[in-house]
Computed example of a mutant assay.
Amino acid sequence: MAKILVLYHSTYGHLEVMAQAVAEGAAQVEGAQVDIKRVPETVPQELAEKSGYKLDQAAPIAVIDDLKNYDAIIIGAGTRFGSVASQMRAFLDQAGGLWFTGALLGKIGGAFTATATQHGGQETTFQGLHNFFMHHGMPVVGLPYAFQGQSRLDEITGGSPYGASTITGSDGSRMPSENELDGARFQGRHIAELATKLHG
């Protein structure tokens, strides 16, 4: 059995929905066990409440040592000025001990993200997350063009060969489209299939 972790941070709920879709896709693979966890919120409670953060998310809070217990780790984090949101960076920066012992070596890594606009830094955010995986010796798996939905031109859509993604709108009012969720499911299933072959 391959163990898959979908680990995310979601400020307003967009990446929570994407994480659920990634997990749904991974769970379709026979022999895959899938968990969804989120990283701690670092913004003070009062400010988060005033800013309209979605604070009622069901996923349990992860600790850094959880990562060593999985065969594949799929990370979802929003973009902040072309980089990974600080909450996820703060969590991943605790992985020095895992790096030192090689605890993540050979595990599969994948990522998904969200931006407010079509050209809001998705690819640079993926690059940052992929760098984390490569520093730990993890092979990186994106969203292949076998998912043809990322090539659509009839609607605004996220998705790239680097990973599933969504576009939220500058006011955060746009939730992931069905096409974007299909991309997330495809990536989750694809990674789980590979993890099952490697570690199952």
Score class of each variant (00 low, 15 high):
22 V>C: 09
128 G>T: 08
128 G>H: 08
112 F>S: 10
168 T>D: 02
19 A>R: 03
29 V>A: 08
2 A>H: 04
13 G>F: 10
166 T>E: 02
196 T>R: 15
47 L>C: 06
99 W>A: 07
43 V>C: 07
156 I>G: 03
163 G>Q: 07
49 E>N: 06
53 Y>W: 13
161 P>Y: 04
35 D>G: 06
153 L>F: 10
127 Q>L: 14
28 Q>C: 14
37 K>D: 01
54 K>R: 14
133 F>V: 02
175 M>R: 12
176 P>I: 02
80 R>A: 09
174 R>E: 12
93 D>R: 09
5 L>Q: 10
118 Q>M: 14
61 I>Q: 15
158 G>P: 03
49 E>A: 15
29 V>K: 04
199 H>D: 10
7 L>M: 13
90 A>E: 12
36 I>F: 02
198 L>N: 02
46 E>C: 04
95 A>L: 10
96 G>R: 11
167 I>S: 05
29 V>C: 06
117 T>P: 05
167 I>Y: 00
12 Y>L: 14
20 Q>V: 06
177 S>R: 06
123 E>M: 11
28 Q>H: 15
52 G>S: 12
75 I>H: 03
173 S>I: 09
198 L>M: 15
17 V>T: 14
30 E>L: 11
127 Q>K: 05
164 A>F: 05
19 A>G: 04
170 S>L: 10
199 H>W: 13
165 S>K: 09
46 E>Y: 03
170 S>C: 09
13 G>L: 09
57 Q>G: 04
198 L>F: 13
12 Y>G: 01
11 T>V: 13
59 A>P: 06
118 Q>H: 08
143 L>R: 01
182 D>P: 00
114 A>G: 02
151 S>M: 15
24 E>H: 10
59 A>H: 04
179 N>I: 14
174 R>N: 14
170 S>I: 13
127 Q>N: 11
20 Q>T: 06
82 G>M: 04
1 M>L: 11
108 I>N: 01
69 N>C: 13
22 V>P: 00
42 T>N: 12
181 L>W: 05
3 K>H: 14
157 T>M: 03
55 L>A: 12
84 V>D: 01
52 G>N: 09
131 N>S: 15
186 F>R: 06
179 N>D: 10
30 E>G: 13
139 P>K: 12
123 E>Y: 11
191 I>H: 03
108 I>S: 02
